[in-house]
């Protein structure tokens, strides 16, 4: 539907524009809820809706007080700190184990490839509440429940499918004669890996890492059960805030998180295009 042909009938024209309007409305439905909280987070009042002062664009109707609250409140700062200490460690574990395994899985002869793949992808498929319940039961048995490492291990397990999927996808286009060439020139497997293979699959590894990071950073169900008050992360604090004492600071936090996701999304998109260019595919 790239443009209407000049011979289109009136009916076709009407349908063409109606369809575009419908699609526009659906896009609006997708994006508006995310955009609407941005102005609301600058509300000078403790309301969750636009005040008359805001609608008349009166500067007094806007303020940064909810952001100030976020940056000065001890609960929020503690949860921010917990989030930024848990997520990178979980990401490191997922990326480390995941990249190795993806390279292994991309070899031509792997025994039980399908079964292994099914097990490795399962944390993404099993509902979070079930993973959370199981981990709560099992981690309390082995003494990991309510500890930093318990949460990190749980989040690493949840991030692994994303690393496997993205890295495997990069490896599909990997030319194996490159490693053979490197070996024939005298490089040992470790040198080959770091000098030849790694630079080529790096975009996949990084985007897998970003997926793993966002999985851990946004995750709330598992940490709710596996963690204790000492591991209260940002999403957990938001969840409590939404359920109990709903405060507009949540909107300020949400706006910051939206900004973070925009940055992550842009990074992933750039990496994807770079990877396709490196592999000689034209970016779509």
């Amino acid at each position: 539907m790239s443009g209407l042909p000049p011979y289109a009938t009136t009916g076709q024209r009407i349908w063409y524009y109606t369809f575009r309007v419908i699609c526009g409305l659906i896009f609006f439905f997708l994006i508006a809820p995310i955009l609407v909280i941005i102005p609301l987070s600058f509300n000078a009042e403790d309301f969750f809706t636009f005040t008359p002062a805001m609608l008349s664009l009166d500067p007094d109707g806007y303020s940064l007080k909810h952001y100030r609250d976020f940056f000065t409140n001890r609960d929020w700062q503690q949860s921010l700190w917990n989030s930024v200490t848990i997520a990178p460690m979980a990401t490191l574990l997922s990326v480390g184990f995941g990249t190795l395994a993806a390279i292994g899985l991309s070899q031509p002869h792997v025994p039980f490839r399908r079964a292994i793949m099914a097990i490795l992808i399962s944390p993404m498929i099993v509902p979070l509440i079930i993973s959370a319940a199981g981990m709560f039961f099992f981690y309390s048995r082995v003494g990991l429940q309510g500890t930093y490492w318990g949460v990190v291990l749980a989040h690493a397990a949840l991030g692994i499918p994303f690393v496997i999927i993205t890295v495997t996808a990069t490896l599909v286009g990997f030319d194996r004669s490159l490693t053979r060439a490197s070996a024939s020139l005298g490089a040992d497997p470790v040198t080959t890996f770091f000098k030849v293979q790694m630079p080529l699959i790096l975009p996949g590894v990084i985007s897998g890492g970003l997926f793993a990071f966002i999985t851990s950073f946004d995750e709330v169900v598992v940490v709710l059960f596996v963690g204790s008050a000492g591991q209260k992360t940002l999403p957990w604090q938001m969840f409590t805030g939404l359920r109990e004492q709903i405060s507009p600071t949540i909107l300020a936090v949400a706006t910051i998180l939206v900004a973070i996701s925009i940055v992550l999304l842009a990074t992933i998109e750039i990496l994807r295009r770079r990877s396709e260019r490196l592999r000689g595919m034209s970016p779509s």
Partner: peptide, 11 residues
């Protein structure tokens, strides 16, 4: 890519 909590709070 936006946090689930963000979308739920906006709703």
């Amino acid at each position: 890519w936006t946090s689930l909590l963000v979308r739920t709070s906006s709703w």
